[in-house]
Design a protein around this nucleic acid. Structure first.
Lengths: 223, 223
DNA sequence: CTAGCATTCAAACGTTCGTTTGATCCCTTC
DNA sequence: GAAGGGATCAAACGAACGTTTGAATGCTAG
């Protein structure tokens, strides 16, 4: 047989990806050295270059492992929604968008959580390689959801909708990153911080209200 | 006289701060070398260590220069608001909070804009030094606004309010960072991207609606 | 004019970075 | 059992990093 060593196959790869996820989140891309990473992963220093080619390629692999399935899930959710009913509500569309994101937080013990924080951090990453990569991976889902929301809110000016989608995306990104700000506001750690179901309800309610907010006349005129 | 050279006094310091703002935004803290920074600023390599002590101290100085006035302005706006009327509306409180942030975008030619992007990026910065610094600088204003919103929305569960403030803060942070996402959604660059007045209206409308969103019964029970 | 001080400068410091190399190991295949 | 190849290893590569040094500079004050 060609494939025999099924158990430890690519185990080194996986261990590198897991540790990279954690360290990139903690120290950033430039702040994470290959020496620290490989030491923590219990692999040889040369392993990253052997399995991935370079540090930049490792960064890309870290993102692809989680982002490709997530955006695919987003599109699948929207497909399902549009198959079920002819004109889904804005709230249902929002929920379809944020659910795959929040699902990431529940993945595995700490892996998914590490990644969501890394991801939130990356939305403002200045590294051009990373920016391009993220842009490419998000574009298809983003266009689908933009079209869906345009159909659901035909009376809203396109310019206004773009901005409100931007706000929504920002809120989700920030929530996934979930830095210490919640604690900064609360003065203590909220208990349900990791309760994805409750968080989804909170987020959906907040975003749906924001998306449907009445428009000021001054904005209408300007737009 | 003790102070004579009024014109070029600390000119080197200022030039370093301006360039640091720009380069930190473009390449991050770890990604910005002192050699590139000092070269672009037209000063000697040793100037940063002479004027600031170290690279970390420079990072702190970059934030203090803009953040201290901004958070002071936030508190001043709230003081003024609470002096004018006994119980300000949530919308007025939101506006008082976001206005000083958006004002940063209009500062100078590019300086303030650079900083807001740097700032948005920093909300998810993993560097502990930076995290602590940001936390310290935001805490006072945050507690004031939390108290003000609790008074304005006495019927809302504290837990829910904390999360909605978190969402609001995230939306503002993301909007200030203003990465390419707007373009990603729009497919092109929106014309009024830097129109702070219009942006303030859009943001306030969105956030006020979100903050006042009806609460699902399931959430009420859980909270 | 000169002494003093803040600032600037070129050069070098030791350290750490990402990557490469060539030997070695281990398992599959014939 | 010998050959072959993917994987791992210790060691070293040149480059770039933040910082330090001591001399040179230019302005101020007496």
């Amino acid at each position: 047989m060609t494939l025999r060593a099924v158990k430890p196959q690519h185990e080194t790869r996986t261990r590198i990806l897991d540790v990279a996820e954690e360290l990139f989140m903690q120290h950033g891309f430039e702040g994470t050295s290959m020496r620290l990473l490989t030491a923590k992963a219990g692999v040889n220093l040369a392993a990253v270059n052997y399995h991935f080619g370079s540090k930049d390629a490792l960064v890309e692999a870290v993102f692809r492992r989680r982002l490709d399935p997530m955006n695919a899930a987003r599109i699948a959710e929207l497909d399902k929604l549009e198959a079920e009913q002819r004109s889904p509500s804005p709230e249902a569309i929002i929920r379809a968008f944020i659910t795959p994101g929040l699902k990431l937080m529940e993945d595995g013990k700490t892996g998914g959580r590490n990644f969501t924080r890394l991801l939130g951090r990356t939305y403002s990453e200045p590294n051009k390689l990373v920016r391009q990569l993220i842009g490419q991976m998000y574009a298809p889902a983003m266009q689908r959801y933009k079209a869906a929301l345009e159909r659901a809110l035909p009376q809203m000016p396109r310019e206004e909708l773009v901005w409100r989608m931007h706000f929504m995306f920002g809120t989700l990104a920030y929530t996934l990153a979930a830095t210490d700000t919640v604690q900064l506001i609360a003065g203590c750690k909220p208990e349900d911080r990791y309760d994805a179901a409750l968080l989804e309800e909170r987020l959906t309610a907040f975003l749906a209200a924001g998306l449907n907010a009445p428009q000021k006349s001054s904005i209408k005129k300007a737009a």
